[in-house]
Amino acid sequence: MDCTSARPSIQALDVSKHFGTPGDKIYVQALLKTSIEIRAGELVCFIGPSGCGKSTMLNIIGGLLTPSSGSVSVMGGPINGPSPRQIAYVFQENALFPWYNVIDNIKLGMEFQGVDRAEREDRAHEALKAVGLPNFAHHFPGQLSGGMKQRVALARALSLDTDVILMDEPFGALDEQTRMVLGEDLSVLLSQTGKTIVFVTHSLGEAVFLSDRVAVFSARPGRIKKMINVDEAHPRSPDFMTSDKFGDLRNELYRQLHDEIRKTVEQVA
């Protein structure tokens, strides 16, 4: 947390979200009066049982969902819809447009955002280099592996030059080894950019390895049950993963989560 300032980047106050109308069969109270403050330059992971509302919270911050009550502001301004100038997204599923090649995908994001045509090309190539894929500009997404696709998605988010990047289980569909490498690279990359990141994950190790703080969500209706500090400088080396500190934090996280996961399973069963 050394390089983070005290300025709040994201502020969520008493955010609740339900789907459907009360009494309906499909009525779900996803979030209940959840508040969080995220400082500029901080990386916060949301972790919790399936269906606990962590992705809902992320999408409310990103303006893709409207909260039922409560409010969110990013860099001081209220969020009432997508804010492409401030917030970029990396989704879990492959969200690249399969009909455009890699470089056009990245440039299209900037076109949507309103970047001048002249600037797009350079920034796209720069972002592609940053994620280690400078030679794949003219490949189509269908020709790339899952890990490479997510690297391109990250490059697209970086090229948008936003203060905030929201990542919704970006490595969720990848195998463990690809995940590890991508996690390490992400740590290095983000330590250089100073962006504020919110990262939804199911992986305890990933949460500890990447985060400055981990927000543990309770079973439905979701709220933040505990914040765990990971006091370790970025970029983090693979050695951190084998340290006692890492193990202790991971165990602590597991204790916090275990009961909630049980509760969720019992809710479903």
Binding site: G62, L64, P82, I87, A88, Y89, A95, F112
Partner: peptide, 14 residues
């Protein structure tokens, strides 16, 4: 795929 729409919307597509 809904994620493609969400992705375009998040980047400010009209």
């Amino acid at each position: 795929k809904p994620v493609l729409l969400a992705s375009a919307r998040s980047m400010g597509a009209s």
